[in-house]
Amino acid sequence: MVPDDLKFTKRHEWIRVDGDKGTVGISDYAQGELSDIVFVELPQVGARVKQMKPFGTIEAVKAVTDLYAPVSGEILETNPELKDKPETINSDPYGDGWIIKLRIEDPCELENLLSPADYEKLLEEEEH
C-alpha cells in the first residue's frame, strides 16, 4: 500500500510536505527493485537542487540509480543514519529511511507530481 499523505515522482521518489519544508525518500517499490542498498551519496546541506534533477545516488549490490528532486529547493538536512545503515531504506522506506529534507522553493511545482492513486496506477503498469 502506498501511504496517502505523500506525492510521488515518476522515478519513484516521494515527498512529504510540511509547510514550506519537504521530506524526501524513495518508495517501497523502488527499494524492492534495488534490494540490498549499500551506499547513499548525499548532497551537502545548503546546496540547491532543481526539480527532477539528480541530487545524489543510491547504490545497491548490483544496481545504482540517481536520486531526483521532486521539487526545487535548498537542502536543509540529510539523514545521518544512512551513512552507517543505508539498509534502513530497505526496511522503512517511508519512515526512518527518509533521505533529505529541503525547503520548497515553489509550491506550484508540487502540482507536477503524482498523487498516491496515480502512483499506484504507474506501478501497475510497470509490473506488466
Binding site: E59, A60, V61, K62, A63, V64
Partner: peptide, 8 residues
Amino acid sequence: QTREQHIR
C-alpha cells in the same frame, strides 16, 4: 561493480 560500465 556498480562503478563499472556493464552496470552504470
